[in-house]
Design a protein around this nucleic acid. Structure first.
Lengths: 165, 165
DNA sequence: TAAAAGTGGACTATATCGGTCCATAATGTC
DNA sequence: GACATTATGGACCGATATAGTCCACTTTTA
């Protein structure tokens, strides 16, 4: 019940790149500093993101990494699952019929519902959207003091009502 | 991103007891068999559930455990959090202001939203409701063959649409 | 050609998970 | 009162995952 630091970092790397002008590279050092990720750990994460096809890297003097696909086409779910494998809230909440108890366990539908919501939310949110929000926050903070945007960014996130079982 | 076996087992213990006639005791051995939980592990879990006040135990010849509170008053969230501590999907999704980046990290609202949904869903579902569903499934399966109820129990779980960010 | 980047891989410390085992205490039954 | 039965408390454990670190090496470019 908590995503790994690795996955969290990976998502912040993609976000960092998505907020850059299209096609621009960033050096790992700079990403590490901006996103507060241990550089040595970031090295490994960047390799994984390359292997998964989300980013592409170039070496040497003016090297760095950049998105290999448009940010509009990358969802939070995709990156998360690339780092952690298929997500699931409970052992039986994905591929429910693989659980020997699925046909009669009454808690099952609750997990199935939570899982479906999560997949839907993360799977329909792209890094383009998140980056756009990031730009708004940045703009707002540069206008009015350091903490101007915080309250708004939370308020704006429409919290869904959870339907009963 | 997956609740512990311990928490899953704990919830199934409470469900098992909630499906019994009110006030009736069950022996740990029987719960272990019915719920397919390793008995030695269950011993420890039962102790924790006692300490948390969900169940009460009595020793000796006709001993066993039973619910210490009405099933209507116990939510899935309560039991889950008693076993795992406050739930969170990401390090920063609970107590967001404790994260040094919360005021400008654009992924934050997504985690906050998912977290809120999960808390709402699990916090508003009681073991009385789940037990009732369990009784329905049981009744249905005893009427028509072993796998009769499975499909229905999934269909009936109304899957919520996830609102966009 | 030298500095600056990413690359690949070995390595590690720590914690958590998912248990097991057992000696002991309490309790009902005969 | 003896005995079988049940929970209790705590010690113990192996495997795996996590969250990193470190570094020698290759590639690129100014």
């Amino acid at each position: 019940m908590e995503i790994s630091r690795r996955a969290d970092y990976a998502m912040r790397v993609i976000l960092d790149l998505a907020m850059l002008p299209s096609g621009m590279r960033a050096r790992a050092r700079d990403i590490a500093r901006r996103q507060a990720i241990p550089y040595a750990f970031l090295q490994k994460i960047i390799r994984d993101l390359c292997a998964a096809g989300f980013i592409e890297a170039s070496r040497g003097r003016r090297g760095g990494v950049r998105l290999a696909r448009p940010a509009e086409s990358i969802t939070l779910l995709e990156v998360l699952e690339a780092m952690e494998g298929p997500i699931r809230l409970n052992r039986c909440s994905r591929e429910p019929h693989l659980c020997p108890r699925w046909s009669f366990c009454a808690v099952h539908p609750v997990w199935a519902q939570a899982q479906a919501y999560l997949e839907q939310l993360l799977g329909s949110t792209t890094f383009a959207q998140v980056a756009e929000r990031g730009r708004q926050i940045r703009a707002m903070q540069s206008r009015n003091g350091a903490h101007g945007a915080a309250a708004l960014s939370i308020q704006e996130a429409s919290i869904a009502q959870a339907p009963r079982i």
